[in-house]
């Protein structure tokens, strides 16, 4: 865990690296989430000050987008596609079985903090569904064996 000075320094570095971009806020938020695994509340005033925005504006942007989290996720993140093409290949049933195996609902994290389960609407793998993304890795034709793989 970084102490608060280290946080501030890292955020400052990220802000510096994005100077001169047109519309830098999304790239900045992605970089912060990449660095910390989430967008810490404590970073918001610092971002706001650097971009001459209000804290509310920055918070409004962070909360608008599904990708940005205000708290860290589990060690592994499974994103399961819920969209139509995957549904026609049984994505709903697979999702139910995965939820049961993990003991969580959508957006939930297992009690041991190992796995977070999230819905995603299309990964562009619609001709080889049901599709998933596990820690950024794409997987086609998934079934519940995915859970055992992640637990390894």
């Amino acid at each position: 865990m970084l102490d608060s000075d280290a946080y501030t320094d890292r955020v400052a570095e990220i802000l510096e690296a994005h100077r001169g971009l047109e519309g830098p806020l999304l790239p900045i938020l992605h970089a912060i989430q990449h660095a910390f695994g989430h967008v810490p509340d404590s970073a918001i005033p610092q971002i706001a000050a650097a971009l001459t925005l209000s804290k509310a504006e920055v918070h409004g942007v962070v909360s608008f987008y599904h990708d940005f989290r205000d708290a860290p996720a589990g060690k592994h993140v499974i994103k399961l596609c819920r969209a139509e093409s995957c549904q026609t290949m049984g994505a709903d049933a697979v999702a139910e079985r995965i939820k049961k195996a993990l003991g969580v609902d959508w957006h939930g994290t297992t009690a041991d903090g190992r796995v977070t389960l999230e819905p995603v609407f299309c990964l562009g793998l619609c001709a080889c569904g049901p599709a998933a993304m596990v820690d950024g890795r794409l997987v086609g034709r998934v079934d519940e064996s995915l859970v055992a793989e992640v637990a390894k």
């Binding site: 999304l26 790239p27 987008y65 990708d67 995603v120």
Partner: peptide, 8 residues
Amino acid sequence: EIRVGAGA
């Protein structure tokens, strides 16, 4: 430039 969306 390449820009990345955020899941919306």
